[in-house]
């Protein structure tokens, strides 16, 4: 593990039953680095980032996040989850709570923040994602793009050092994708460490420091975007890029 890595996956293996989803995955992420992970569906990219905050358990290898190794130790898992925010494809907002309550829930209960302070924090986060006027609505009353931005605000309210995005725009109508990507670009420019699983190659070209391509549970290729898109090494990468870029 190199000195300035904030996330380090070493030889990680994982199985779902007999199915080998992650095969000898090695990945080092530096502080403030923006990684975009792509690959065909079923290639293990979501599983990999879900291992980083232990929503999935890896069976072999080491995962170290901000100096804490993820093992069965519940205390370690809790501290890692406080460091790592996650945004899901299906938003997963809490439908019985208002937008503001969705965001203040964790600060109040996990960080024991006073309610007034948490609400102020929530409003700040909603400013960042540009929908402060929706604070008192319920998730069911918002559009998909707005819901996803609330989900981002909810994660940011815990002041994470790392943000994981698991196909954040895949469930959105085309015209809502941009509003979510804009928020993510702002975040990237603010210096957040980010790992983004996405098929939005335009976004990848603008913000990624490094592209990671996965196929069949392995990391096939890692490169800076310029090299990755214009001069990929592996044939599998070439085939994948030709399929998603030429249509």
């Amino acid at each position: 593990m190199s000195e300035d890595s904030i996330i380090s996956l070493q030889n990680v293996n994982k199985w779902f039953g007999d199915f080998h989803v992650l095969k000898d995955v090695d990945l080092e992420v530096k502080k403030k680095e923006r990684i975009v992970v792509c690959g065909p569906s079923g290639s293990g990219k979501s599983t990999m980032i879900r291992c980083i905050n232990r929503l999935e358990e890896h069976q072999e290898g080491k995962i170290i996040v901000d100096g804490i190794e993820l093992t069965g130790n519940l205390k370690n898992i809790d501290s890692v989850r406080k460091e790592v925010g996650m945004v899901f494809q299906q938003f997963n907002l809490f439908p019985h709570l208002s937008v503001k309550e969705n965001i203040t829930l964790a600060p109040i209960w996990v960080k024991k923040m006073p309610k007034a302070e948490a609400e102020e924090l929530a409003m700040q986060q909603l400013e960042i994602v540009k929908i402060p006027e929706q604070a008192d609505k319920y998730p069911g009353q918002l559009s998909g793009g707005q819901q996803q931005r609330v989900a981002i605000a909810r994660s940011l309210a815990m002041k994470p050092n790392i943000m994981l995005f698991d196909e954040p725009t895949s469930a959105l109508d085309p015209e809502m994708i941009k509003e979510v990507l804009d928020v993510m670009i702002d975040l990237a420019e603010g210096g957040m460490t980010m790992i983004v699983v996405t098929h939005e190659m335009g976004f990848a070209k603008t913000v990624a420091d490094r592209m990671v391509f996965m196929d069949e549970g392995r990391i096939v290729e890692q490169a800076v975007p310029d090299k990755f898109f214009n001069n990929p090494e592996s044939d599998r990468t070439k085939l994948f890029l030709s399929q998603i870029l030429n249509h």
């Binding site: 989850r81 925010g85 907002l93 829930l105 964790a106 209960w109």
Partner: peptide, 10 residues
């Protein structure tokens, strides 16, 4: 819902 709750540290 469980995953979201876990991911924000509950």
């Amino acid at each position: 819902q469980y995953e979201a709750a876990r991911s924000i540290g509950l």
